[in-house]
Amino acid sequence: MIQVGHILIHARKLMVHSLRTGSGVAFIFLTILIGLSLASLAVAPVELGITDAERFRESASQAIGIGLATATLRLGEDDDNLLSRMESGDLIDLGMWARYLVLENPMLLSITVLLLGLVLPVLLPLGSFTAISSDVQHRTVRYLLPRTTRLSLLLGRWLGTLLLTWILITLLLVSVVVYLSIILPPDSTGSMVPWAARCLLALCCLAMPYVSLGILCSATFRLPMVALLAAVGITVGLPLLALSLQEAWEPLGQILYLLPWGYSHELLSPDVEKVRNAVFYSIGHSLLFMTLAAWRFRRADL
């Protein structure tokens, strides 16, 4: 049975508790630190004058194209030919997509968000691995069970972790946007805000399934460290496995879609249909992970 009041109480408690624990503070600080460092990575070459904006835009477009080809498992055997394939009919959609990100929208913000999209999935388990497992390990959960249903507890912890993550992502993106607004010419700031809002929604959508995966691991494993290793291992291991399996037999590469890796980049696609699908997939993945977590947690001896 779901008790909405209890879910909110658990969510609030998790958020406050996260800020009081060493691992919570480390998660917040690392997310901001790494997030801003990634932004710095995108901004520094132009800011330091190592390259001019046009040349940077060109090479960024190519790099993003290769990244998208990798993400969509369309790299093929002949990598050298990739750029010409992008210009010709074969991968023209990817070429247009890359241009959409760097030409039609603020390039530095796009690059920052793409980099965040790669790194956040690995960082997010840091915020969720203790959500359930820590209380199970120390049996603190036994003080809660006579007072609340397991489902309310699980959903409350999920909601608290998700809200904390969304707040962090918002803080991070606002810092980057404010900074870019300061260093870029004022006329480009106007186009930055709607794109930043779109990027924020994309990152928040992306965070949902990964937070759910972290909660699933936390509800499955009694030891927090095992939960963390499992979440990070699955997140990092799956794309590597998919790429190597694809080489053995192409259809096996589709296991990439077990996690959002296979579609998360589409959250920033110029095609509205693709964006909508990616959002649905994100929600679907989150639902799937949380259903598994609820099934596991309900059956667990605590």
Binding site: I28, F29, I32, L33, L36, S37, A39, S40, V43, A44, E47, L48, G49, L171, S175, V176, V178, Y179, I182, I183
Partner: peptide, 17 residues
């Protein structure tokens, strides 16, 4: 400051936090 702006933003985050 050029090139270290975002690292200053990073440092600025901490006092408020």
């Amino acid at each position: 400051l050029r090139g270290s702006g975002l690292s200053i933003a990073r440092q600025l985050f901490y006092p408020f936090f």
